[in-house]
Amino acid sequence: MTVSASVGESAGPAASGEPLLKLRGISKHFGAVQALYQVDLDLPAATVTALCGDNGAGKSCLTKTIAGIYQADEGEIFFEGSQVHIRSPKDSAALGIETVYQDLALADNLDIVQNMFLGRERKGRFFLDEDDMEKAAAETLAGLRVTTVRSIRQPVATLSGGQRQAVAVAKAVMWNSKLVLLDEPTAALGVAQTQMVLELIRRLKDHGLAVMVISHNLNDVFEVADRIAVLRLGRMVAQDNISAFDRETVVDFMTSGGSNRGVAAVGTQAAL
């Protein structure tokens, strides 16, 4: 188990070299409230990392820092090995980081194609190039095996919760993205739809994307994640390969910041 404070530069994942995204010593405060304190986080490519933590642990704040909505007060961000400064959502999008927020940010009155290209519409000289957008959207959905939607021209209002999540994810990966952040992707879903979304997350990984999933649901975490990072009160209290944890230890870390169940030895970095 790697406690964040002990993570050195040498502690990168062994198998794939440098992680795609590397956060070092990220701190963020809002007035007197210290939301994040010296947080280190690795997000390797082709890997699903679950970010766990109780309410108010700083999960959303950390996500928004990566997404460029917040800027860290302190700390460094490395993307593909080189230091970057993410000052706005545009910066993160330019790096290939896409975020799927819990509310999905879909316009119900627009259809799937229109939502997937929202803000980045393709046009001819004057008018929208609907045919081109529809083909590209269909290809992306097919690549993700999202085949349950009956027509990609149906309004998003007519989709089920799982389908909406799938559209939001497909929208995120359309843009040559390398890292996808998913905020509680299964929170509002039933069992079958949760399975569908978890399957989708695995497919993102198969395509070589780095995925970070924020989740309260440990069932989902253990089903889909390769790595787990646990935040507690703004500090990264544990971060390791999934095999180093079980449910109880994750809960221990989330609630008390440590675990004495002896599943993982603090200070070792498991190979990915």
């Binding site: 097919a142 690549g143 085949t147 990966v173 040559n176 390398k178």
Partner: peptide, 16 residues
């Protein structure tokens, strides 16, 4: 990394 190009594999026509 995966982008549209990589996701094109085995396109499944949505109509089917």
């Amino acid at each position: 990394m995966a982008g549209i190009e990589d996701l094109k594999g085995e396109p499944v026509p949505l109509e089917e």
